[in-house]
Design a protein around this nucleic acid. Structure first.
Lengths: 249, 249
DNA sequence: CAGTGGTCTAGACCACGCT
DNA sequence: GCGTGGTCTAGACCACTGG
């Protein structure tokens, strides 16, 4: 367990200073040349020590300016609420905008892009489609917090079900009962949460700093006779959001 | 967005081969010297390209043997179930052992360690304790899958409530209603899921490979009058488990 | 014993932000 | 223009695994 490499000892020293508050959030870490002087090592070694902190999610690089200690503040995304015994009714699921506003931040700027495509395997499997012959409608959202892209959220439906409804049109809609009107009332969801590192594409789209994992949140909506009618796949950067569920015991 | 460094191009080539199946799970990647020859770069550059794949979670290093393509299989941890309309009753929450067994794996080997301590800030805040004057009982579990440590799970209770009960004793217990008998019946939970990189300590305890983020799952149990009586903090490696919730819409 | 990854050095050149 | 991080080279020695 004990790693006695020079790099690890430097990293441990800096980690200690971050955790005991000597270096608070936003504080500038020693530069690569400075570290290499104080520890009498090559610049590559100093650099490796600093990059280890980035990979741990403790530091952030500001190119050509230095590295700073990362903040640990996160907002909450409420994915399931119910009426508590004291009659405090909380926001219903999926209320992204009010959720962010209630926490004092700006959720405006959501983008929407609607397409009819061949379903990816992960979607075909959940919706019970054939990825060779069937088609699905995907509504791609990018949601923002304070003007910066915060989460990717893609909504998939069987093309045969939503054809001709508002869901197949490239306009935003706030109506919740479109699927119900089409004869597919959704009564429960299964949520799957996968923790992984982002792909290069996701890093670019979400402007994710190094050392930031993501949660892939897959919500599949079912009707009373257990037919899956909706799959929503979200990619949530781990450094900005906490997923929250309120559930009866 | 386009990164034209030599390292990135090599990484992209290998990533492509992994994603299109040329290099399947378990396949051996080119060694550092081999890559440096085929691309005519220094060994450090080849090494950087391979380490980038590790950080993306696509590759795994077997020291002194080479790097292999990582498998993407994960088991499920069912954190919330309810009776579906078709009367399929699924396992109740927290049934870790049956959950793993039902997926064809071995959950045996759980360890338990009980202590009375000063609560960490995160626990004190949720239980409404004072981290200077109050005490809490912590039941620390390490749970295993197929003989390997799979998750850390620490259960915290107000020491004043559980004093004298089985929960304060260092024995395993399967009884669910101990808190209820003490006058604190739990009726709902709030689950928080934080996605982050593991600490060096967690890496050691869970034997986590590089490029593996974790989910920190915090379940706080409340009574009907909204008093928090239990906090369970779990650290879940992202490469082995999917968190799953079944919830009414 | 050949090959692997683990670590480290001592240079080099570049692009860009800041004052 | 100085200092920063970004990238790359060409060596070196080590510990350990495998056939």
């Amino acid at each position: 367990m004990a790693d006695n490499s020079t790099t690890s000892r430097i990293t441990a020293d800096l980690r200690q200073q971050i955790q005991d508050g000597t270096l608070g959030p936003g504080a500038l870490l020693p530069s690569e040349p400075e570290l290499s002087r104080t520890y009498n090592v090559s610049r590559q070694t100093a650099r490796a020590a600093l990059q280890a902190l980035e990979r741990e999610g403790l530091a952030l690089v500001r190119p050509r300016r230095g590295r700073i200690v990362r903040s640990t503040q996160r907002l909450r995304w409420h994915l399931s609420e119910f009426e508590r015994p004291d009659h405090t009714v909380l926001a219903t699921s999926d209320a992204w905008e009010t959720d962010i506003e209630n926490q004092g931040h700006d959720p405006s700027g959501q983008t929407l892009d609607v397409e009819t495509i061949t379903p990816p395997d992960s979607v075909a499997a959940r919706l019970g489609l054939d990825s060779r012959t069937d088609r699905c409608v995907v509504r791609r959202h990018v949601r923002y917090i304070d003007g910066k892209p915060a989460i990717i959220s893609d909504d998939y439906f069987d093309a045969n079900i939503v054809r001709g409804t508002e869901l197949a049109a490239p306009e935003d809609t706030t109506r919740e009962d479109i699927l119900k009107e089409a004869g597919y009332e959704q009564v429960y969801d299964i949520d799957e949460i996968i923790t992984r590192m982002p792909s290069p594409d996701e890093i670019a789209r979400l402007q994710i700093p190094a050392g930031t994992p993501v949660a892939e949140h897959i919500r599949t909506g079912y009707t009373a006779d257990n037919k899956a009618v909706r799959v929503m796949i979200s990619v949530v950067p781990g450094d900005t959001l906490i997923l929250q569920y309120t559930i009866p015991t």
